[in-house]
């Protein structure tokens, strides 16, 4: 083990909760064995890219996916204040097959609504990785594009596409609900054209994304890929 990796290991251990640390456990029959909760309790298998096979079938499925966008109800920033109007009489996004789901397992769209603090980025990554394969990221606001007015803040990221594969950016601070709806339309076009393969990109460029994420999340105390 080189010094560098050892340092990283030690640093990682510092932030781990007591029950997640590696330890030697004695079984009831007296046999001693090592327990590594990060390996044993969580599945840290790398994600696998699952490329579409049959083009005709995939086109049909993509159409169904595009018309049934289940959005994770995770308001990561101030753009989230325009999500409730989207679901109410004036804008009524339900008409376009957009529905909110409370758990990441069942959702297919992650909306990063505005600036992303480092603490939230960690949760957003976890939520994203728990979503199932055709999954899309919609980023709202200038702050996710280039930092916006928080370009000099020590706690908000500058560009989201270094950490998560973004499908559509909606500019503005904050984007109006109309802009958000048109962002959803763009996303639908992308999905129907078969270009929204963010999940596969994430799996293919996994190491690059992880390196970027670990650069700013200094207390990385979870498995590399947590689903």
């Amino acid at each position: 083990m080189s010094d560098n990796t050892k340092n990283i290991e030690e640093k990682k251990d510092k932030f781990l909760a007591e029950e997640n640390k590696k330890r030697i456990v004695t079984g009831p029959d007296g046999v001693q064995f090592e327990v590594d909760p990060l390996q044993d309790y969580f599945c840290d298998k790398r994600p696998v890219a699952k490329d579409p096979k049959n083009k005709v079938i995939e086109n049909f499925l993509n159409w169904a996916r595009a018309e049934s966008l289940w959005v994770l109800g995770f308001g990561t920033g101030c753009g989230n204040i325009e999500i409730p109007p989207l679901l109410t009489p004036r804008f009524d996004a339900f008409r376009y097959g957009i529905q909110m789901r409370p758990t990441p397992r069942q959702s297919s769209v992650l909306i990063i609504s505005g600036y992303l603090a480092v603490k939230t980025l960690k949760r957003a990554i976890r939520s994203y990785e728990q979503m199932q394969n055709p999954k899309y990221v919609l980023a709202l606001g200038s702050c996710t594009i280039n930092g916006g007015m928080y370009y000099d803040s020590y706690n908000t990221i500058n560009r989201l596409d270094y950490y998560l594969p973004v499908d559509v950016y909606v500019a503005g601070c904050m984007p109006r609900p109309e802009a958000l709806l048109s962002g959803f339309n763009k996303l639908k076009e992308r999905i129907k054209a078969g270009r929204a393969e963010g999940a596969n990109d994430y799996a293919n460029k996994f190491d690059w994304y992880k390196a970027n994420q670990k650069k700013i999340i200094k207390d990385w105390n979870m498995p590399d890929y947590n689903w």
Binding site: K50, S68, Q132
Partner: peptide, 9 residues
């Protein structure tokens, strides 16, 4: 259709 055609589970 969407749920049954998800690529991973």
């Amino acid at each position: 259709i969407k749920l049954y055609s998800n690529r991973s589970s």
